[in-house]
C-alpha cells in the first residue's frame, strides 16, 4: 500500500529511479516572498541609480524609460532569467533548496521556464495565488497551472547525510552473548523498525523507550527466546544477534578522508 507522502518517484532516461521530495505551497510561498523582496530591491536600485544619472545627463526621459523597462523585465522575466542561469532556481528557491525540473526528472530548459513563469499571472488570480494553490492542491505532484503547461515540477533537494552505523549502548557483553540463542531470524520490517528505534534511542526518554519497546518486546521474546531485564534490551540483543553485531568487531580499516559536507561515516 502506498503511504501518503509529498514525494514522487522519477525515472531518468538511464532507467534509474529517484525519489524526490515535492514542494507545494508551503515551501514555495516562502521562496516566492523572498523573491518578491528581491524583485522590489532590484527595481528600487534601478530607480535610485538611474534617476540621478538621467537627470545629470539632461535626459530625464531616458531614466524614466529605463525604469519602465526594468519594471517590465523584473515583473515578467525575473523567474525566467534566474531559472535559466541557476539551473531551475531563483534566489528564493536557492535559499530553500528548491529546484524546478521537468516531470521526467531531467533539467528544465528555457521554453519550460518561460512558459511556467508567464503563466504565473494566471496562477496568481484572483489574488495571492488563489488559482495556483487550488491547482496545486488538486495535483498529486503539487504543480500549479504554469507547471502543468510547462511540464515541470518543483522539488526540494535535501542533502541527506548517511548516518553512521548503529551504536549499541552498552555493547553486548560476553555473558549476554552466551545466553543468546544461536540463530535468530528477523523479518526485513522488524530489522528496519528496530534499527530505527535504536538510532532514535538517544533522543527518547528512558521511560518512553521502554514503553515503545514493550510493543514488540514480549512477542519477540516469546518467539526467539531472547531473555533480558528490559524490553529495550530484548530488542537490542535480538537485533544484534540477527545482524551479527553481538560480537566485538575487529577494528575496521580507517575510513577514507572525509568529504566536505556529508562523508559516509564509519563506525567508531
Amino acid at each position: 500500500m502506498e503511504l501518503l507522502d509529498t514525494t514522487a518517484t522519477i525515472e531518468t532516461p538511464e532507467r534509474v529511479s529517484f525519489r524526490y521530495r515535492l514542494a507545494g505551497p508551503g515551501q514555495r510561498s516562502v521562496a516566492w516572498i523572498i523573491d518578491l523582496a528581491f524583485q522590489i530591491l532590484v527595481i528600487a536600485l534601478v530607480v535610485v541609480l538611474l534617476l540621478p544619472l538621467g537627470l545629470a545627463a539632461g535626459l530625464e526621459g531616458v531614466g524614466a524609460g529605463l525604469q519602465y523597462l526594468a519594471m517590465f523585465v523584473v515583473q515578467w522575466f525575473y523567474g525566467v532569467v534566474f531559472e535559466t542561469l541557476l539551473a531551475g532556481r531563483t534566489p528564493g528557491k536557492l535559499l530553500l533548496d528548491l529546484r524546478v525540473v521537468r516531470v521526467d526528472g531531467s533539467p528544465g530548459r528555457f521554453p519550460d521556464y518561460l512558459l511556467r513563469n508567464l503563466m504565473r499571472f494566471a496562477d496568481f488570480l484572483p489574488v495571492a495565488f488563489g488559482i495556483g494553490v487550488l491547482t496545486m492542491a488538486m495535483d498529486p505532484r503539487l504543480r500549479r497551472l504554469g507547471d502543468l503547461v510547462a511540464g515541470t515540477v518543483v522539488v526540494a533537494e535535501d542533502k541527506a547525510n548517511m548516518l553512521g552505523d548503529v551504536v549499541l549502548e552498552p555493547p553486548v557483553s560476553e555473558a549476554e552473548r552466551r545466553a543468546l540463542p544461536p540463530r535468530i531470524e528477523l523479518s526485513h520490517d522488524d530489522l528496519q523498525v528496530i534499527e530505527a528505534f535504536l538510532r532514535r534511542r538517544p533522543k527518547l526518554s528512558d521511560d518512553r523507550a521502554e514503553e515503545l519497546a514493550r510493543l514488540l518486546g514480549p512477542a519477540l521474546s516469546e518467539r526467539t527466546g531472547v531473555e533480558a531485564p528490559s524490553w529495550e534490551r530484548v530488542l537490542t540483543l535480538a537485533w544484534a544477534r540477527a545482524t551479527g553485531r553481538d560480537r566485538p568487531v575487529e577494528a575496521p580499516a580507517p575510513p577514507p578522508a572525509p568529504a566536505e559536507p556529508a562523508p559516509p561515516e564509519s563506525r567508531s
Binding site: L59, V62, A64, G65, Q67, F72, Q75
Partner: peptide
C-alpha cells in the same frame, strides 16, 4: 516627455497586456 521614456512605457504596458491576454 521623450522617446526613450515612451518606448519603455509601451513595452511595460503593451507587452504586459499581451502576456496577460495569453496567460
Amino acid at each position: 516627455s521623450g522617446d526613450a521614456s515612451m518606448a519603455g512605457f509601451y513595452v511595460f504596458n503593451n507587452v504586459g497586456i499581451a502576456f496577460r491576454c495569453f496567460t
